[in-house]
Design a protein around this nucleic acid. Structure first.
Lengths: 193, 193
DNA sequence: TATGTTTTGTACTGCACGATAAAGAATCTG
DNA sequence: CAGATTCTTTATCGTGCAGTACAAAACATA
C-alpha cells in the first residue's frame, strides 16, 4: 500500500553478484554497486541495509542459480557417469579460460577472502560445498553400481577426492593459460574413479 | 654511507607477510602494516614505496621461505614416495585446522584475489604453482621407476592431478572442520597414484 | 482528491584510506 | 668536528569510503 519498487530485486542481485564475483567483497565499493545495478545509494540501502548484507544475498543468489544448475546437471540420468564428470570439468575449463576477468567460482572466492570465512557467508559457502559433495557421491554410487566405476573406494571418499581436484582445477585456471595442464588434471582425476 | 636502518628488512617482510596472509591484500590497511611491523608510515614508504610493492615483496618472501621449504621436503630421498606425499597432505590438514585465522596458503589466496590475478603478483604465483608441479613430477617419476607407483599415467599428469587435489584440499580446509572429509581426500588421491 | 506509506535522488557526514612533506636525529666520510 | 646522506618522526594531504538524513516524488487506499 505504497509506492512500488522501480526495479526487480533479482535483477539487482544478479548485477551485484557479478561485481562481487569479479572484484571480491573488499575491493567492491558501494559506488560500483550503484553503477552496475543502476540504483541510487538510497534505494540500495533501503532495500538491502548494508554492503555486507547485499553480499550475503548475492551469495545466496549464486547458490540458487549457478550452483543449483550445476547440481541439476549432476543428477543421475542415462549415459556414462564418467563422461558426465569429465564434461563438468572440461566445460569449466572452457568457461574459465574464456573469461577475461578470470573470476572463477564465486563460492571459492568467498571462501578465500577473510570476509567469507566467518558468519553467515561462511555457512552459505559451507553448504554449497556440502551440496556438491552430496551430488557427486550419489552420482558416483550410481556409476559404481552400474559397474562403470571402480568400487575399491567408498562413493563418498571418491566424491571428496573429485571435489577437491575440481576446486583445485578452478583455482589453477585463475592464473594459468595452459589448457593442457588443466586437461591433465581432468584425465588424471577421471582415471582415478 | 649514512644512517643505518633500525630494522631488519626480512623481519619486516615476515611481519607484513603475516598480515597479508591473514587478511588478504585489499582488507589490509597501511595502519595494519605499521602496527605489525612496528614501523612508522614514513619508514615503510621509504623502504618499500607502496602498499602494493610491499605485497609483492611479501609474496616473494613467502616463496623463498615457506614454499621453498615445502619443495625441499619433496626432493627425492630414501623412503616411500607414497608416504611422503601423504605426509605432505596430512601435515597441511593439521596446520590448517589448527590455525584459528584459517589463512590457508598465501599463494592460493593471492590467486583468488583480483589484486593477484594480474601483473607481477600473478607471475610470482604462477611460478610457485609451476615449481610445485615440477617437484611433484620428479618425485612421482622416482616412485614410478621404483615400481612403487602405477605407471599407467605419465608422471607430469599424475603430478598435476595431485597438485589440483592438494590445492582443493587447502581451500576446503578454510571452511570446514570435518577432518575425516579432508582425510578422505588424501586417501582417495594417494590411492590414485 | 486527500492521506498515509514507501521509494527515490541528492547532499552530506565522519572517517579511514594510501601517500607525502618536512624537519630533526643518527650515522658515515673526511 | 663538518658536511653529506640516509633514516625516523610527526603532521598532514586530498580522496574515496560506507553509511545517513531528508525532502520530493510516486503510488495505494479511501
Amino acid at each position: 500500500m505504497a509506492r512500488p519498487r522501480e526495479f526487480s530485486d533479482t535483477a539487482v542481485l544478479d548485477a551485484a553478484m557479478e561485481v562481487f564475483w569479479e572484484k571480491g567483497y573488499e575491493a567492491t565499493t558501494t559506488q560500483d554497486l550503484c553503477e552496475c545495478t543502476g540504483l541510487g545509494r538510497g534505494s540500495l540501502y533501503n532495500a538491502f541495509g548494508s554492503k555486507h548484507a547485499l553480499y550475503e544475498e548475492a551469495i545466496k543468489r549464486y547458490a540458487s542459480t549457478r550452483a543449483a544448475l550445476q547440481l541439476q546437471e549432476l543428477a543421475p540420468a542415462g549415459g556414462s557417469v564418467r563422461d558426465r564428470l569429465r564434461d563438468l570439468m572440461v566445460a569449466m575449463i572452457d568457461l574459465d579460460l574464456e573469461d577475461r576477468g578470470r573470476r572463477g567460482c564465486l563460492a571459492l572466492n568467498a571462501a578465500s577472502e577473510a570476509a567469507g570465512r566467518s558468519g553467515e557467508v561462511a555457512s552459505l559457502v559451507q553448504r554449497q560445498f556440502k551440496d556438491l559433495e552430496e551430488a557427486l557421491a550419489v552420482l558416483i554410487a550410481v556409476g559404481q553400481h552400474a559397474g562403470e566405476l571402480s568400487t575399491s573406494r567408498p562413493p563418498l571418499q571418491a566424491a571428496r577426492m573429485f571435489q577437491s581436484a575440481y576446486y583445485g582445477l578452478r583455482t589453477l585456471a585463475k592464473v594459468t593459460d595452459d589448457r593442457q595442464a588443466l586437461l591433465d588434471v581432468v584425465d588424471g582425476t577421471i582415471a582415478a574413479l
